[in-house]
Simulated scan of single mutants.
Amino acid sequence: MESTARESAPALSPATQSNQAAQPNQSGQSNPAQALINWDLAASAAARLAPAGPVLDGKAIGDAVDSLRRLADASVPHVHEITGLEAARDLRDSSVLVVDRASWAKANTQSFAVMLKPAMQKMLDTRRGNLSPAAAQVSGAITGSQLGAVLAFLSSKVLGQYDPFAALAENSTAPAAGRLLLVAPNIISVERELNVAPEDFRLWVCLHEQTHRVQFAAAPWLRHHMLEQIDELSGHLLGNVDSLMERASAAARSLKDRSASGNTPGRGAILDLLQDPEEKAAISHLTAVMSLLEGHANVVMDAVDASIVPSVKTIRQRFNDRGKDRGVIEKFIRSLLGLDAKMRQYSDGARFVRAVVDVAGMEGFNKVWDSVDHLPTEPEIHDAKLWLDRMGL
Rank of each mutant, 00 (worst) to 15 (best):
L159Y: 07
L182W: 07
I333W: 09
A15Y: 09
E199G: 05
H208R: 06
G178W: 12
G392F: 06
P133C: 03
A219R: 14
G392R: 00
I283M: 08
S259W: 14
T83W: 15
A355Y: 13
V114L: 15
R354S: 13
E363Q: 15
A149E: 07
K342P: 03
T211N: 13
A169N: 00
Q20A: 11
A60P: 07
A218M: 14
L238W: 09
S347E: 11
D73A: 13
A177G: 07
H224C: 07
S347T: 08
P118M: 10
L375E: 12
Y346S: 02
V241Q: 12
S234F: 12
P14I: 06
M120D: 03
D231N: 15
A119P: 06
A35I: 02
D276S: 08
S13L: 09
F332Q: 08
Q210R: 15
V372Q: 09
R334G: 03
V65R: 09
H208P: 04
T377E: 12
L222E: 13
D358R: 14
P310F: 05
M245T: 00
G268W: 10
F112T: 05
Q345F: 14
A9V: 01
P133G: 02
D383F: 15
F153I: 04
L131C: 00
L386Q: 11
A72D: 07
A136C: 04
N19C: 06
V356S: 09
K106E: 02
E7F: 11
T264F: 14
H224Q: 12
S155Y: 07
E279V: 08
L116A: 08
A384N: 10
V359T: 12
Q121L: 14
G323Q: 12
R326T: 00
A43V: 02
A5L: 11
A43M: 00
H382N: 11
H374D: 08
L238F: 15
G62N: 14
A218P: 11
D348Q: 11
Q161R: 11
M290L: 12
N298P: 05
A72R: 10
S27F: 13
G239A: 10
T126G: 10
L181V: 03
D90T: 01
H296L: 14
L12S: 12
A135T: 02
W369P: 08
